[in-house]
Design a protein around this nucleic acid. Structure first.
Length: 562
RNA sequence: UACCCCGUAGUGUAACGGUAGCACAACAGAUUUUGGUUCUGUUUGUCAUGGUUCGAAUCCAUGCGGGGUAACCA
């Protein structure tokens, strides 16, 4: 539409671009840029992963390089094909396609060979110490650790034992393989880290081929190296692991990727912890991994967030090493900006109040034309039935309105969007004094909402014709937590006590007839209320809509102030 | 009281020794058949103290503050 849409905006740069530039200038990787997104298939991806995905795939695109998808599947007891499938769906939904597809388990044989090489170099040993001993001997943040009794086992003995571990001669936990580095190292990761543990468990890909599995630290860097990854992007908590990965690579003289750490995304009023999210799912607090309140990619997709909006959001928040907390409003603003351009407008009344037009002929239906999207004329118009009995929003009427209230009130005239101008004559109340119906008159000369005498009305409100209205279940979503920073919850408190009990509320709305048969996933704006989408629970008899995000609401803001 | 990382408006992020800018939020106004959108304007900032320099958000030192790290998890 506007001309500046045509001007391609380069993605914002950040410190990782600078690092890659330096590598390209020095020729460290021969000008090659190859990143990877390495999730563990033990849960669903969330918005934090979206940041990482946009970063890794974005970097590859920016530098005309490649980006792999690699599943870090080294813990057979926690991983599952269900998660693998969901993760691939999510990456594609975000708009990315991987170059190479790998699993850490693809490299199990090679990893095993590396382990034997370490043993042969005298850099790894088989330890029979029980878990508690290993833990105790590790020392603390301020004290050096102690050597294991098995630390000086001979190469031959280590090799023989390790091969017997592989052959399945020992039960779980009997032995582990450890690197031989430095038990007094100030970096805890260097204190003879564990490399392999025995697990007689079925792996989702390798089945029962293996009964010993490599640990993440041992696996991760080698996989990056084997895939030819040039820049191993990861989050800040792995900063202390970098010296260990470097050690693994260098002692075997392998291709050496550059690890670069960035700050993970934290958002107000939600959690990014897979463990906590899993707990919500398992406790039934939410409808599942794809509950629209969940910060999972599956959740926000069901909620109606768009990939374009998510990518724009990821560009906005930038990439740094500062561990901050991003305002949810930044995300919502990105989603609104995207939906505003594209979502067709419809009318739906969420909290219906009946209006009877006393001077409108009974049984008569008048059709008016409505613009589908004022932001995009190419979306055309549709016809709206108008009749004697209507629904308007309860919140659009006040019997004793304050000065700032522009909407309907006794004696006041407003415009019904794309309909007629109406004037409120009387508010009908029930025994309790609650307004249950409005008796209004309409001006037949104002069809479409234009007054021939050009008189002004203070407000335009949405409505639906009662006889034509489609009742629908509408799920209104709000923030998951009541507390801005979930990390601030004290350890002695239960984080679940801070969940927002009103994060979902369900109402029966009355929608304009055009909304009757929309398929799951359909997105639109309910005028003046927000963006909504059809939920997968929808049926022919009862449409179900989710509120993706509200519109900005000046009136709500004014109310809050007073 | 170990090691590593990080401190720029309320929040997030630019400025690569040379005018502290952008987004979101907030506030004020204009436009508007959505109290939406759009447009205009305003408020608010370099953690502190020294040093180097003609010149420091940027380099150095010290201090202060925040985060991470002691799973046979990733």
């Amino acid at each position: 539409m506007s001309t500046d849409d045509a001007v391609p905006v380069p993605p914002p740069r950040h410190f990782i671009h600078d690092i890659v530039d330096e590598h390209n200038q020095s020729g460290r990787f021969g000008g090659r840029v190859h990143t990877r997104f390495p999730p563990e298939p033990n849960g669903y991806l969330h918005i934090g992963h979206a940041k990482s995905i946009c970063l890794n795939f974005g970097l590859a695109k920016y530098f005309d390089g490649k980006c792999n998808l690699r599943f870090d599947d080294t813990n057979p007891t926690k991983e599952d094909q269900e998660y693998v499938d969901a993760i691939m769906d999510d990456v594609r939904w975000l708009g990315f396609e991987w170059d190479g597809l790998y699993y850490a388990s693809d490299f199990f044989e090679q990893l095993y060979q590396y382990a034997e090489q370490l043993i042969q170099k005298g850099l790894a040993y088989v330890d029979s110490s029980p878990v508690e001993t290993i833990r105790a001997q590790r020392g603390s943040l301020t004290e050096a650790g102690k050597h294991s009794a098995d630390r000086d086992r001979s190469v031959e003995e280590n090799l023989a034992l390790f091969r017997r571990m592989k052959a399945g001669e020992f039960p779980d936990g009997k032995y582990v393989l450890r690197a031989k580095i430095d038990m007094a190292h100030p970096n805890m990761n260097m204190r003879d880290p564990l490399l392999y543990r025995i697990r007689h468990a079925e792996h989702h890909r390798t089945g029962d081929t293996w009964c010993l599995y490599p640990l993440y630290d041992f696996t991760h860097g080698y996989c990056d190296s084997l895939e030819g990854i040039t820049h191993s992007i990861c989050t800040l908590e792995f900063e202390n692991h970098r010296p260990l990965y470097d050690w693994f690579i260098d002692v075997l003289g392998l291709f050496h990727p550059q690890q670069i750490e960035f700050a993970r995304l934290n958002l107000t009023y939600t959690v990014m912890s897979k463990r906590k999210l899993l707990e919500l799912v398992e406790a039934g607090t939410v409808r599942g991994w794809d509950d629209p309140r969940m910060p999972t990619i599956a959740g926000i997709r069901r909620r109606g967030y768009t990939p374009e909006g998510m990518r724009a959001f990821c560009e906005t928040i930038g990439v740094t090493k500062f561990n901050g907390l991003t305002d949810l409003s930044v995300l919502e603003s990105a989603i609104r900006a995207d939906l505003n351009k594209r979502a067709p407008r419809y009318m739906g009344v969420i909290n219906p109040l009946k209006v009877v037009l006393t001077n409108f002929p009974e049984g008569h239906v008048e059709y008016t034309d409505a613009v589908n999207n004022p932001e995009d004329p190419s979306q055309g118009t549709r016809q709206l039935p108008f009749s004697r009995e209507l629904y308007i929003e309860h919140d659009d009427f006040m019997e004793n309105p304050p000065k700032q209230f522009f909407r309907l009130a006794p004696g006041r005239e407003v415009r019904l969007r794309w309909g007629f101008l109406i004037t409120c004559q009387e508010a009908v109340k029930d025994a309790a004094g609650k307004v249950i119906e409005l008796r209004c008159t309409y001006d037949p000369a104002t069809k479409g909402g234009n007054a021939p005498d050009n008189r002004k009305v203070k407000s335009t409100i949405h409505w639906v014709s009662a006889a034509h209205a489609v009742p629908a279940e509408v799920r209104l979503y709000d923030k998951l937590f009541n507390i801005e920073n979930v990390a601030d919850i004290p350890d002695d408190k239960d984080w679940k006590d801070y969940l927002n009990p009103a994060s979902e509320s369900t109402v029966t709305a009355q929608l304009e007839p055009a909304l009757a048969d929309k398929p799951a996933g359909f997105q639109c704006q309910f005028e003046r209320l927000g963006y909504f989408c059809v939920d997968k629970d929808t049926t022919k008899d009862r449409p179900v809509f989710n509120r993706t995000v509200t519109l900005k609401d000046e009136w709500a803001k004014l109310q809050k102030k007073s």
